[in-house]
Every structure is written in C-alpha cells, then in structure tokens.
Computed example of a mutant assay.
Amino acid sequence: MVNHFLKLSDIAPEEIQPLLERAIELKAGATSNALAGKSVAILFEKPSLRTKLSFWVGTEKLGGHPVHFAPEEVGLGRREPIADVANVMSRMSDIAVIRTFEQSIIEEFAAAASIPVINALTDLEHPCQALADTQTIMEQLGGVSGAKVAYIGDGNNVAVSLGYAVAGLGGHLTVASPAGYTVPGESLEGANTYGASAGGSVTQVTSPEEAVASADIVYTDVWTSMGQETESAKRLVDLDGYQVNPRLLDQAGSNVKFMHDLPAHPGEEISDGLLYDSRSIVFDQAENRLWAQAALMEKLI
C-alpha cells in the first residue's frame, strides 16, 4: 500500500513525535541517503517561497533530485486529466509534492498515483506546515503535550492542520475567530477525536484575549489567503480586532513565543515590526519546514 500525506490525520497521533524527533536529528547534522537515486516531482498551482525551497533543498539533503513544475506547465484537470498526470509522474518520479486548491484535486491525484503523494497546501489543510510548527514548539518548550497554543484569526487550512497536530501530541489549541471565520465544525470535531488518546484538545472561541490567556504560543496567519483576493476588503473589516500585536502578547504567558507561517501582512493580522519582536520565533519556524519535510519524505519513501 502506498503511503500518502494528504491530511495531517494520515499519520497516526503516535507517529508524530518520532517523526519530529527525526527532524530535529536531521537539523542537528544527521545524514540520510533515503532519496539517493530518486526524484521528487514538485507540482505547484499556487505561488510558494518556503514550501518550494524547503522541499527542493530537503530532497537534495536526502540525496535525491527535485523537479519543479510551475502552474502553467501542467494545469491539473485543465490541460490534462488529473489521473493522467498522476500516472505519468508515478512512472518517472518517486514522490509527488502537490500544492493546489480543492482537496478533491489532490485526493484524485493520489487515488491514481503509485508513489507517495504529499500535500504541500490545499484549501482544506496545510499539514506540512503543522509538522514544522509542532517541531518548533517542541524545540521551544521541550514538548507539545500540555502546551497552550492560541491561534488568532481566520480558522483556515493552517488552523485546521495545526489543530490536529497539537491535539495529536497532547497539547491544547484555542482558536479565536469572529463569526463566519471559525474552524469548520467537522474539522474541529475531527481534531478533538484525533487527539483524544493523547489528551489533546481544540477549542473555538471568539475573544482573542480569552484565547491568549496563559498561552505559551500565540500564532496567527494572513486574513486573506491565496485565491481569496476578491474578499480582501470584506475580510479586513470582519477581522478587525483580531490583530496580534505587543499588547495582545503581553496578555499571554510571561514566556510566550509568537509564530506566523508567513508571508505576513504587517498592519493587518500583525502589527508593524512584530516578526522581529524578541518573542518572535517565526524564522526558526520557517527553517523547520526543511527539516520536518525531510523527515516526512524519509518516512514515506
């Protein structure tokens, strides 16, 4: 059976910790030739800096060869049927890394593929980001179990995957969002079920102040994600009051750390300069995309 990573829950809760420990080992200098003589096809239908760079460099660090396809080169389901692309890539590469829009696209791709398929972001989830996020929390706090994480803003794909990962490791995520921007009910229920055996939880509230009280980590993401540009003006109004700034961080735990998956929009979801606040660990978090994904590819191949 081919192992795919299309949603965070595609790996069992008890598999997350060893994977993140391996990521930390690789970051500390451990070497691996898991992809020696193998190729990784990187097919992105959305722009990317961190995801493209981290998969490219991570593939090379494991001894493999990355092959990148820009949006106009393939056209999943438009220029060529999704199943046809999956079959061709399966014949010529060893892992497919897909960044696209609807979750159904990557699910259809994986159903036709005979190689591991990795979700590098869809509208539903961003599971690779969640691996890097929880690796970063582990490094800062010594573990995720029992950690209090606050997520402020749009309950989007990043929030969904983060919820599964934090809960699966026994941590507690509180999401603060206005009406209309909360984590989908099915995802909220799913994350709590996923994390039940570890004692983890995900809770939805509306008040940012309530969410950050005693928090070890405060996390946010952009208010307007890729593909939502036409909604930008409305989102700026609806999410007003959900900015993360020094005042809000001051209401969290005394040793709070600030996280953001980037790119950020200062003046919107964060105040100017917050990425460089002494409490910010966003660039450690960005670097960990490389190591978490390298460990993931090593696991799946």
Rank of each mutant, 00 (worst) to 15 (best):
S278F: 00
V183C: 03
L296P: 12
R289H: 14
A198T: 03
Y242D: 12
N245A: 11
A132F: 06
P246G: 14
W223D: 01
A34S: 15
I115R: 10
Y164C: 02
L26K: 04
M297R: 08
F283Q: 11
T122H: 06
I98H: 07
E107Q: 06
T31L: 08
G190R: 00
E102N: 05
Q228S: 01
V149M: 07
M226K: 05
P266F: 09
G75M: 03
E298A: 10
Y276E: 15
G190C: 11
A159D: 10
I106S: 05
H172E: 08
A252D: 12
L76N: 00
R79N: 14
F258P: 10
I42W: 00
A191V: 09
L121R: 02
D133N: 11
K257D: 08
D284R: 11
A70Q: 13
V67L: 10
L6E: 06
I106V: 14
E73D: 13
V57K: 10
F109H: 13
T224W: 03
T31N: 05
K27W: 06
T122V: 00
V222Y: 02
V144L: 05
Y151L: 14
L49N: 10
V175N: 01
L236D: 11
S187A: 15
I152E: 11
A86I: 10
A70H: 09
A83I: 09
E14N: 15
R279V: 13
S9C: 11
H4C: 08
L6Y: 02
N157Q: 01
S9I: 07
D94H: 15
G29E: 12
A86W: 04
E231H: 12
A159Q: 00
E125H: 00
L173T: 06
Y276V: 08
I152T: 10
Y164V: 01
Q285R: 05
V183Y: 05
A196R: 11
K148N: 13
A211C: 02
P47G: 03
G200V: 05
E231Q: 15
E231G: 12
A215S: 12
A96W: 01
A113I: 12
G199R: 00
A165D: 06
L173S: 07
A34R: 14
S254F: 06
S145R: 14
E231I: 07
Y242S: 11
M226T: 13
E210W: 04
A120H: 03
T193P: 01
E107N: 02
I24N: 07
S278P: 12
T230C: 00
G142L: 00
T230L: 03
G190L: 05
S177T: 08
P263Y: 08
I98W: 04
F283T: 13
R279S: 13
K299D: 09
V149T: 10
G227H: 06
R235I: 10
T31C: 01
S207A: 01
N3S: 15
N255I: 04
D133I: 09
K27V: 04
D261K: 07
G241H: 00
I152D: 10
G241I: 04
T134Q: 04
S177I: 10
Y242W: 15
I24D: 08
K38W: 04
V183L: 15
